[in-house]
């Protein structure tokens, strides 16, 4: 017969000792964990927070690591970080060289799904409403315009995950080179919807099925989901503008080994 749970009489003094030990233990482990989890050891390149992420100090407590943003992303751009990624455990990130955010889900679904507003949807909602008000003012006679078509681009443009940085040393256009074929190797799994591609509408398809033939490479400019507000060709080389949202499509589809256009965290 197994022994019965011995009912230990614990004195007030003993209880106090256990309590102090617990308090010190939890405090020490907690402080260590906090130190480890707040350390960002990535160089910030191509590793971005999802759209709408609030300021990092706030993001660290607001994110409860539930992963709803990961689940809802139709192109699997959002992933959860492990300690090995150099980011706080369980927080969402995008590695845009592997899979960029092409806004093809429409209405910022990862932001909308976040229950704790670590990805804050209110700002996008307000931005969308502003765009509608503006459109109505500019087009007083247009009564049945497509609200979504007005709202969404404004929301996309409001996003600020990071900014593209061009490396003119390796950029094909800067070296006067053209590009023919598909930008990434055959095993590359990333997908995106090209705004220039009317045939496929806005549904994303593999990078490998996007074919180009340019005498001077400008695919980062033509396939930018934001368009001329974000990147233009100037003096035959791409130029990143204020409007860049950091979505990372250009980084993902840059044909050079080691992308010539990278993303810097916002």
């Amino acid at each position: 017969m197994a022994k019965k749970e011995k009912e230990k009489e614990i004195s007030r003094r003993q209880f106090l000792r256990f309590s102090v030990a617990t308090a010190i233990g939890v405090g020490a482990v907690g402080a260590g964990v906090t130190y480890l989890s707040t350390k960002d050891t990535t160089n910030g390149e191509n590793m971005l927070r999802p759209p709408g992420a609030i300021a990092n100090d706030d993001f660290m407590y607001a994110c409860i690591k539930c992963g709803l943003c990961v689940q809802i992303c139709p192109i699997d751009a959002v992933k959860l970080a492990d300690l090995t990624q150099g980011l706080s455990y369980g927080t969402p990130y995008l590695d845009v060289r592997e899979q960029a955010c092409d806004f093809s889900c429409g209405a910022m679904q990862c932001v909308e799904t976040c229950p704790t507003a670590a990805l804050d949807f209110i700002q996008f909602k307000e931005e969308g409403e502003k765009a509608i008000t503006k459109y109505e003012k500019e087009h007083p006679n247009d009564h049945d315009f497509n609200i979504i078509a007005v709202q969404l681009p404004a929301m996309h443009e409001y996003t600020k995950m990071g900014t593209a940085v061009l490396n003119t040393d390796t950029c094909l256009a800067a070296n006067g080179k053209g590009f023919k074929g598909s930008p990434r190797d055959a095993n590359f799994k990333g997908v995106y919807a090209s705004p220039a591609d009317v045939k496929n509408g806005l549904s994303p398809y593999p990078v490998n099925e996007h074919e180009f033939d340019r005498s001077i490479c400008d695919i980062c400019v033509t396939d930018c989901p934001i368009g001329e507000k974000a990147i233009i060709v100037e003096n035959k080389i791409p130029k990143v503008l204020e409007g860049c949202t950091g979505c990372g499509v250009c980084t993902m589809i840059c044909p050079t080994e080691g992308p010539s256009i990278t993303m810097k965290k916002a």
Binding site: V33, T38, D57, I64, G90
Partner: peptide
């Protein structure tokens, strides 16, 4: 004190 969800990390 730390403004972190300390418990969630462990």
């Amino acid at each position: 004190v730390t403004k972190q969800l300390v418990f969630e990390d462990m």
